[in-house]
């Protein structure tokens, strides 16, 4: 069976997805990146190999996305390296044909993508502020002493959500402390936080965007029923959370890989790479005042790739730093 592998290495999670020729998801793996993109991709590949063992599969294409897409692309030998916006839009369009709005909230990024007639017409991402992303929710759940997995359930129990400032996570936190000390119930505070986060999202990344149905909500935070409910309330629309909501970027990358290998053979380096020794190193080029940070990737002690230079001086792998 011919399959296609998609890898999404983000700030918080790393996801691997294998799809078959009919775009069905064969396996999906969700791991924490923990700041070690290469090691986690190797772990992920091991798991994929284990799960697909004996199924007589052949990986015919690999695509990478996420903030570590270039690094990962080099390590695995990707056929296509694509930004998250396009990858997420592709995946959402597969699962919900005719989708017009994609709300995506991940670990450190939140974005909105508008599609019309199957083409991305507009998008926005949060810029300098991380309020309202997964990391923020994680932190607040931790502070309130409840597991993030149960966060949404608490919110749904609320009858009277309290009002919490969602503009900045620092303000939100002090607001929450205040509400706790006043004696409000935990569900009301959590529901209030969900409302605040959605308000912030719609006012920030969603500012001035025409949000039309069908609306797909994806990314790790889509697991949170409280946020989904808050979106539904704020937008007065049905919110669709797709079955593989937390690995949509990887699904998109796999679909793009399938397109990319139409006219060429895959450059996938095989599952063996999960046991190779990868090392990275960097140095600051002193050639000019740009002071580029040059990054070297070594596999088994041999220089595999290098980037980071602005002038192309280091593009030649033979020169050493």
């Amino acid at each position: 069976m011919n399959v296609f592998l998609g890898i999404d290495v983000g700030s918080v999670s790393t996801n691997l997805v294998v799809i078959d020729e009919d775009n069905r998801v064969c396996t999906d793996i969700y791991l924490r990146t923990r700041g070690q993109p290469i090691a986690v991709v190797q772990d992920g590949l091991k798991e994929v190999e284990k799960e697909l063992k004996g199924k007589n599969i052949k990986v015919c294409g690999v695509g990478t996305t996420g903030s570590a897409r270039y690094l990962t692309g080099i390590v695995v030998g990707a056929d296509t390296v694509k930004n998250e916006i396009t990858a997420h839009a592709v995946a959402a369009s597969l699962i919900v044909p005719g989708v017009q709005t994609v709300l995506e909230i991940g670990g450190q990024d939140s974005k909105i993508i508008l599609l019309r007639n199957g083409v991305v017409t507009d998008f926005a991402m949060n810029t300098v502020c991380a309020a309202g992303t997964g990391s923020f929710l994680d932190h607040q759940a931790d502070r309130l002493g409840i597991p993030i997995e149960e966060f949404g359930e608490y919110a749904l129990k609320s009858k009277n959500p309290v009002r919490i400032a969602g503009r900045c996570s620092v303000f939100a936190e002090s607001d929450m402390v205040h509400k706790q000390q006043m004696g409000h119930s935990l569900p009301d505070i959590i529901a209030g936080l969900c409302d605040a986060l959605v308000r912030n999202y719609l006012n920030n990344v969603g500012k001035g965007k025409e949000i039309l149905p069908p609306i797909v909500f994806q990314g790790g935070v889509a697991a949170n029923q409280g946020i989904k409910h808050a979106f539904k309330k704020a937008l007065q629309q049905e919110i669709i959370v797709p079955p593989h909501y937390n690995v949509m970027g990887a699904i998109g990358a796999a679909l793009l890989a399938k397109t990319a290998v139409r006219s060429k053979n895959t450059s996938f380096r095989g599952f063996e790479i999960s046991s190779l020794n990868y090392e990275t190193g960097s140095f600051e080029c002193q050639g000019c005042s740009n002071r580029c940070e040059i990054i070297n990737i070594f596999v088994e002690g041999k220089l595999l790739a290098r980037w980071g230079g602005r002038c192309g001086k280091w593009d030649n792998l033979r020169e050493t730093g």
Binding site: N23, V90, L94, G118, V119, L255, T259
Partner: peptide, 10 residues
């Protein structure tokens, strides 16, 4: 044909 359409159509 958009990137998206061709990725899904395959």
């Amino acid at each position: 044909k958009s990137v998206i359409k061709s990725a899904i159509a395959l």
